[in-house]
Each structure stands twice: as C-alpha cells, then as structure tokens.
Design a protein around this nucleic acid. Structure first.
Lengths: 206, 206
DNA sequence: TGATTTTCATATTGATCGTTATAGAACACT
DNA sequence: AGTGTTCTATAACGATCAATATGAAAATCA
C-alpha cells in the first residue's frame, strides 16, 4: 500500500523539500489567512518552496487547499470511530465541542476553525471550494445525527429527542466558537460556552 | 441636524445616483461575497456606479465597507433600547437569536450574517477591517451582558448566573447559525437551533 | 561517462487588483 | 452668456494575482 500522494519515481532529481511538512505549512497559512485571501506568494514564503515546485507537487492552489483541508479535518472514519467508542452520544458531542474549544485556542496554531474561516465567503471562482468545505461539515453533522439515533434506539435518550436539532446546535456552537476565538476569547471562555451549550441534553442517564 | 454623510453642496453637478441605494447594493455585495473577495469591479456592477464616483462618494473600498457594515448592524443604541424594552434578559436574547435566524434565511438577502462572513479571515491589509467587525460584535456582547446583569440585580435571574458565559453562548450560536444558513439550512432549522440554544437559561420566572 | 528523467531557480505571462489622472458634462450663481 | 464648482466617463496607473516557459541542476540507469 503506497502512502504518498505522488507515485514514487525511480529516476530524476529528488524533491528538495518535505512534502508533508510543506503541506502542513500551507494548511496553517490557509487557516490563518483564508483560501482566496492567501496568495501563492504567501504560500511560497510559508512553505519555503518556489511556485513551480508547489504546482508540480500539489497541482494548483485549489487542490493544495483541498488537500490541506483534508489534513485539517482528518478522516471521517476516525471521527465516526471516536463517536462509536464514546459511552453516550452526549459524551461524544461534548468531547467534540470541548476538543474544538481547545483546538481553536491553541497557541501553536491560528485561532478559530479552518472550516469556519477559510471560505466563509468568496468569489464565484471559489464556489466549488466552499461546497467542498460545506460537504465536510455535512459529514460531521451526519456522524452526530447517527450517533444520537443509536442512543435513542438503545433507550439512552427519549424517543422525542430531536437528533437533527441537537446536531445542528452542536455544529453551530462549534463554528460560533471559532468566531469568539478569532475575536480573542481565551480557552477558558470557550470551554465554558461549550459546557453551557450542552444544557439542552437533558439525558438523565449516563 | 444633517442626515446625509456628505455636506449638502449648493453648486456643482448633482449626483446621478441614489447614494443610499448604492450603499445598500454595496452592503448586499459584501454580504454575499465578503470584503476582500469583492472587487471594485463587482461593486461598480452591483451599484451601477463607476469607480471614480464610488471613490468620490465613499472614499475607498475600506470606508465603503465600514459604512455598509454600520448600515447592516444598525445603531448600538437601537439594540440597547430593544433589550431594555424586553420583559426579561432571556426574552431579549431569545428574540435576538430568533431575529438572526430569520435574517440569515431571508429570501431577499444573502444567506448568513455579514458580520460572520465578510471578514472571517483575510490578509494583513484587512486586519483593521477585521478589528472593526470584531468591535461590532463586542458591542453586541456588552449589551447582552449588561441586560443579564440587570435581571440578576432585580432578582429575575439567580446571582450565580454567569452573564458572560450566556452572552458568549448567544453570540456563538448566532454566528454559528450563519454557517448553517450558508450551508443551506432553512429557516425552520435555524429557529429550532435558536430555541434549543436557550435551554441553559433555567429562569423559572417570566 | 553519457543518456534519461525529474526537480530546481529565474523570469515572465496575461489578467485583474485598487486607485486615480484627465477632460468633458451638468448644475448654481452672477 | 459666462464663471465656478462638482460630478461623470474613459482610460490608464503600478502592483499583484495565479500560473508557466525556460533551461540549468541533480538524481538513476546503462
């Protein structure tokens, strides 16, 4: 099983940079400054790679961003697994929001959420990128809804539980915390918000 | 009391366009496409005004956006008045979030919130614009906090009420709903989220 | 060593960015 | 009508945008 994106070549001059490290830098730059508002010039400076090498290694700006986004968001399977392991849907969601609160206020990374910030708006040229990010959010939402419905079936949550509303609320709070973090809110503040947002889960058990 | 921005002139060629209407169009364009990602060319097309006229009437792109933003956000005094009129802080906040849910899903306007979308990220050149938008959000937050503390003083809310947490939660849900709306969520969905987000307000009275 | 393959650095492409210089057009006042 | 003032349209400014053409450099393979 080949792990690297490009097929390993047997001849020719070798890459002079670490592709993964460069992608990481690109991700951080998009996270900090957004998709359209990050220039190729910004990327070459941050990645330490010249423009032609970026294009050779990643395609174009759009594909570079999409790859960086997938690196940020992680694999959907991993999220689903984390949700499956959690004792209850409530725990899973609370953990997700708390982790987001911590991620958005990390010292080593830009404030807020890449998915919330990078393509909040933009020109028509970037509509497909916005759609890709929206799709990423839909995947997260679907995982939450699914996990809640498992708890309903198992009697851990009342049948009247509105799984989609709770999932949308969790997603809204998460994306909203990104704005707070961008505005300078500290980790403690976000964790308090995360905790307060769970009040709607009146699951008496667990 | 002079109402118009520019002083009324007594001589010279009159404006060939409606300044207020043009500003409205600019606001909608920024709302739809963001600050940096909206070009002057986009604005001339939307406003029906040539570039030199825009610059004469509004200064530059930055000042045009700031004026459009103030038009969108309204006067802080008006918000404060609406909060003062409301029977309780809880009612005031619930109304604010519900109004946001309706605004973000309006048919005649772009989806989501201009304050959340237009400058979620961007280049260094636009950092002062981001700060201005952040300041706008801080004003809203301050109004919420203040209103909650009034209720606490009057015994309508328990002294243990964490006014800042509730205000941050309200702001986060509001800004988060903007993302949901951008992703295509309908009005009913957002209103359900708005309602669910108020669960933390266990004010037994009123 | 020489041929082949791939990446490298430099420089440049046409397009678009925000902004403005220029000159004519439309008004009020004399 | 003539003058002064302000706005409008055309065209252009230098800068920057995303993306590449070019040819030298660095590796493998024969």
């Amino acid at each position: 099983m080949e792990n690297s994106k490009a097929p390993r070549r047997k001849t020719g001059r070798p890459l002079s940079f670490d592709r993964d490290a460069a992608l990481e830098k690109a991700m951080l730059t998009f996270w900090e400054s957004g998709y359209e508002t990050t220039s190729i010039s910004d990327l070459t400076a941050a990645m330490g790679v010249t423009a032609p090498s970026i294009y050779a290694a990643f395609g174009d700006k759009k594909r570079l961003f999409l790859e960086a986004m997938r690196r940020y968001a992680g694999e959907p399977d991993d999220l689903e697994k984390a949700f499956a392991i959690a004792p209850t849907a409530r725990h899973a969601v609370a953990d997700m929001i708390e982790n987001a609160a911590r991620l958005f206020t990390g010292e080593a990374t830009p404030k807020g959420c890449l998915l919330a910030c990078a393509v909040a708006t933009g020109s028509k040229d970037a509509s497909d990128v916005r759609e890709a990010v929206a799709q990423e959010r839909r995947v997260i939402r679907a995982v939450i809804v699914k996990r809640i419905e498992v708890d309903i079936e198992q009697g851990l949550l009342p049948p009247s539980t509105r799984s989609k509303v709770l999932a949308d609320l969790a997603l809204a709070v998460t994306q909203g915390m990104s704005v707070l973090a961008r505005d300078g809110a500290d980790r403690e503040t976000l964790l308090a918000v995360a905790n307060a947002s769970m009040a709607g889960w009146q699951s008496q058990g667990a």
